[in-house]
Design a protein around this nucleic acid. Structure first.
Length: 877
RNA sequence: GGGAGCUUAGCUCAGUUGGUUUAGAGCAUCUGCCUUACAAGCAGAGGGUCACAGGUUCGACUCCUGUAGUUCCCACCA
């Protein structure tokens, strides 16, 4: 059968994924082996695969596949997140397209649509992950709104409430006027915006012609002003103490107050106060007992309380109020101004600070052990620079607003009573029971209890993920949680370190008394090669599915991993995938080569092959050590690069070229067996990175049992001692080969033309290495002669041994001299540097003996080299 | 406004307690090759006063200080 010269990943990849699934290689059950656990950062149930997921999940798959082959009972738990705001927004849009308004639906009707939609469109991303080769235990797939997981969320809420860590209160919250819900501080993204600073004057009450001018970026909120504030030591305004001012348009009389909060240098030094619509104003309002006038409706339009522009959107109103102020003679001037405005992470709507009744979770006591665990390295961060970010946030942690005014999510398990009190319980029955016990006089029935309308922040379920996927909240002593928890590693992006990572650590301590994971690997952001974030708007984000079709999942995985040290941004470029595809092709062709050989059992093993086999084994050992170290530190790109070079440069370019028989000639049995062994070993080592092609070739290399897979065979391990002498000697031989090839290249000598090589050394020849040199440099004879022998031809010096290739008529003496003189210059410069050190008494006296000896050796070597070059030069001149 | 990180070849990055032959890799570049595994390839080559300025030291890419540029995080400046 003729094999194609190009590797075709499409057919191979689907075949093997199916095979793995059929044989349940991804599935794990607790057993006697040590566990290696990863829980997937659950993507939004409505999400589709983007490059960030590709990076994140490739890393997880590599770690899981490696652990599995290292003898761990590896489990990778997949699942999705219900993503309250994002999903609800999608469902609302979908309904709108059908002509249905959410307002016209009951909660139950809406949720029915939402679930239908989730069933139909949800989890696409999990299907896409299979293309990537993700070896998730799909039997364990979880969803944050599954019944068991939802119950865990409720249990946790009730528990925290009973511990006094959950409270309800009116606070200034970040209001998203589009999603009509509060969002947490972490969900607000501040962006710099080009806006205007409006200067508006307010008349002093009872002092005609006297004005006080304020500066504001939000003139529409003037309608809700309830004070003007100045610095108490600002002489400019001292004379107004005790006076009042008149708010333009609405003609409301408001007090003038004094507070050190005000910066005298900013604007006019006078600040208008709108306690209902600004967090600082709100705090000042509390301090100075100011009236609060809420001039906005929940959707961001002006309310009746504003009196003017009622019903108009806040941004429209900002424009519309200007001519009104101008007409009233209140507008002084308008300046350009750059300020920061908060946007909702989910809807990209400008956040409106709003007073509302919300549920909060106290964080102080939860944060304490979680902070310690990371600072003490019980949990290791990779890279550890994120410890700084983490500790800063944890030390200044604020209470968490956990309620959202949405329908899609876990409903707050609180029931309101007719007497304006409420009870928190696991369900309505329990609530009624508690309420009846608490208020026996009310004669309560089920109909009197009304469940709170709000749902919980999505992260209030996500923070339990490592616990709840193993049912560790409801049944803390079940065998699964006892076996798989704490998990081994968490792979996630640094932008959710507060949302998710920190809170999972808190939850781990609160409900299990221990860490949820041992290591956290923070991936970088995937950017394009111009360093821009990948985004839909820019259109610079490739479709991962198309990429995988083009380059193979293995090729894309290779491309993602090759340049992605932990925590560093990944500058993605398709050429990286191209490199991955090329590597696949290289592997494929190496296989084709070996596959095409015939074996002659009567042949004995040639010396060059025997030597190459010994060397290749040792090289693999060397790389295994490197790979193991790299994995320890999560330096996956380094591990991959080491393997890449091992396969391409050592195995293909060198080893296979040595053992390769002449055209149509058979190879001996012994060498062939070794080649298959080595090839197989390389596939084992590479497998976690490129699972498909390694499985394919592993099966092609030998007959395998029907249910065999490279996924579950043991990973080759470093045996310990590496024969460094052998490696060094072989490396030297490769340099000799390179030099001979260089001479060929420079002198235009065809590869076919065999050469003779003279080695001017007193040392005994190493027959094995000579055999390798003969083969790869196409040298028919290597003559070992005395160091001072006369040999003409192109020469070079390696390790202070002179080599010469006699060439009749091809050697240009002038050219040789030029090259030797360049070498001489370098060697002399080098010697000079060494001598400078050695002639420095301080150096000789203070530096460790070892270092001084090293310098002396450098000196001796350099002097010998110079002698050799000079000798050679004198012969030529 | 605070805090943290980064700055090494054209690009992306290594450089592990300051000394390992006057800095390494991959990609890209250049030269020569369709050599019977692979042109998605083979063989060879070139390319860096380690951001800048001081300091500590016998010795600095490595430690300290400052400057510049850059990235990220946090913060209520109207």
């Amino acid at each position: 059968m003729e094999l194609a010269t190009k590797y075709n990943p499409q057919e191979v990849e689907d075949k093997w994924y199916q095979y793995w699934m059929e044989h349940k290689f991804f599935h794990s059950e607790p057993d006697g082996r040590p566990a290696y656990t990863i829980v997937i950062p659950p993507p939004n149930v409505t999400g589709i695969l983007h490059m960030g997921h590709m990076l994140n999940n490739t890393i997880q798959d590599i770690l899981i596949r490696r652990a599995r082959k290292m003898g761990f009972n590896a489990v990778w738990v997949p699942g999705t997140d219900h993503a309250s705001i994002a999903t609800e927004a999608k469902v609302v849009n979908m309904l709108k397209e059908k002509g249905i308004d959410k307002k016209d639906l009951t909660r139950e009707e809406f949720l029915k649509y939402a679930w239908e939609w989730k069933e139909k469109h949800g989890g696409i991303i999990l299907k896409q992950l299979r293309k990537l080769g993700a070896s998730c235990d799909w039997d364990r797939t979880k969803f944050t709104m599954d019944e068991e997981l939802s119950e865990a969320v409720i249990d946790v809420f009730v528990d925290l409430y009973n511990k006094g860590l959950i409270y309800r209160g009116v606070r200034m919250v970040n209001w998203d006027p589009k999603a009509l819900t509060a969002v947490s501080d972490e969900e607000v993204i501040y962006k710099e915006l080009q806006s205007k600073l409006y200067y508006v004057r307010y008349q002093i009450e009872g002092e005609p012609g006297e004005y006080i001018t304020i500066a504001t970026t939000r003139p529409e909120t003037i309608l809700g002003d309830t004070a003007i504030c100045m610095h108490p030591e600002d002489e400019r305004y001292a004379k107004y103490k005790g006076k009042r001012a008149i708010v333009p348009l609405v003609n409301r009389s408001i007090p003038l107050i004094y507070d050190e909060y005000v910066e005298r240098e900013f604007g006019t030094g006078a600040l208008k106060i709108t306690p209902a619509h600004d967090i600082n104003d709100y705090n000042l309002g509390i301090k100075h007992h100011l009236e609060t006038i809420n001039i906005f409706n929940d959707n961001g339009t002006l309310s009746e309380a504003a009196q003017f522009l009622v019903g108009m959107d806040r941004f429209e109103a900002r424009k519309a109020i200007i001519p009104l102020l101008e007409e009233a003679g209140s507008l002084v001037k308008i300046e350009d101004y750059t300020n920061k405005v908060g946007f909702s992470e989910r809807t990209n709507e400008v956040i409106e600070p709003k007073l509302s009744l919300q549920w909060f979770c106290k964080m102080d006591s939860l944060a304490k052990p979680a902070l310690e665990a990371v600072m003490k390295d019980d949990i290791r961060f990779y890279p550890d620079k994120f410890k700084n970010t983490y500790s800063h946030w944890m030390e200044n942690v604020k209470d968490w607003c956990i309620s959202r005014q949405l329908w899609w999510g876990h409903r707050i398990p609180a029931w309101h009573l007719p007497n304006h009190e409420f009870v928190v319980a696991h369900n309505a029955e329990e609530a009624l029971q508690i309420a009846q016990e608490k208020y026996p006089d009310l004669n309560l029935t089920a109909a009197d209890l009304k469940q709170d309308e709000d749902v919980m922040d999505t992260w209030f379920s996500s923070w339990l993920w490592p616990l709840s996927v193993f049912d560790g909240i409801r049944h803390p002593d079940n065998p699964e949680i006892n076996y798989y928890y704490p998990t081994s590693a968490l792979i996630t992006a640094p932008d959710i370190i507060f949302f998710w990572v920190a809170r999972m650590i808190m939850a781990g301590f609160e409900w299990r008394g221990t860490i949820p994971f041992k290591d956290v690997y923070f991936t970088g952001t995937v950017r394009d090669k111009l360093h821009r974030k990948m985004s839909k708007q820019l259109g610079n984000s490739p479709d991962p599915i198309l990429l995988m079709e083009q380059y193979g999942a293995d090729g894309v995985r290779f491309g993602m991993m090759l340049s992605s040290p932990a925590g560093n941004d990944l500058l993605f470029d398709e050429s990286l995938c191209e490199q991955g595809r090329n590597f696949s092709n290289k592997l494929w062709n190496a296989f084709r080569l070996v596959k095409g050989w015939t074996i002659d059992p009567t042949l004995s093993q040639p010396l060059h092959s025997a030597t190459a086999v010994l060397w290749m084994r040792e090289r693999i050992q060397e790389v295994l050590v490197k790979v193991e170290e790299s994995f320890e530190d999560y330096r996956l790109s380094e591990a991959l690069m080491a393997i890449y070079k091992l396969i391409w440069d050592d195995f293909c370019s060198c080893f296979l070229e040595v053992v390769k028989a002449a055209y149509l000639q058979p190879v001996d049995q012994k060498t062939y067996d070794e080649i298959i062994n080595l090839f197989e070993t390389l596939m084992e080592i590479l497998h976690p990175f490129m699972p498909f092609i390694t499985e394919e070739l592993w099966h092609e290399l030998r007959e395998r049992p029907a249910d065999a897979s490279i996924m579950v065979t043991p990973m080759p391990k470093a045996t310990g001692a590496v024969n460094q002498q052998l490696l060094d000697d072989f490396a030297n031989a490769r340099e000799v080969i390179e030099q001979v090839r260089r001479i060929r290249s420079e002198k235009n000598i065809a590869n076919k033309q065999a050469l003779t090589l003279h080695v001017l050394s007193a040392k005994a020849a190493d027959e094995g290495l000579d055999a390798v040199v003969r083969k790869l440099a196409n040298v028919e004879q290597i003559c070992h002669v005395a160091p001072d022998a006369e040999v003409n031809g192109a020469s070079f010096i390696l390790q202070n041994v002179k080599y010469a290739v006699p060439l009749t008529g091809l050697v240009d003496a002038a050219e040789e001299i030029k090259k030797l003189e360049a070498d001489l210059k370098y060697a002399e410069g080098f010697l000079q540097g060494v001598m400078k050190k050695l002639s420095n008494e301080n150096f000789v006296n203070n530096a460790p003996q070892k270092v001084v000896d090293m310098e002396r050796k450098k000196q001796a070597d350099a002097e010998e080299k110079i002698r050799l070059i000079k000798e050679q030069l004198s012969k030529l001149q």
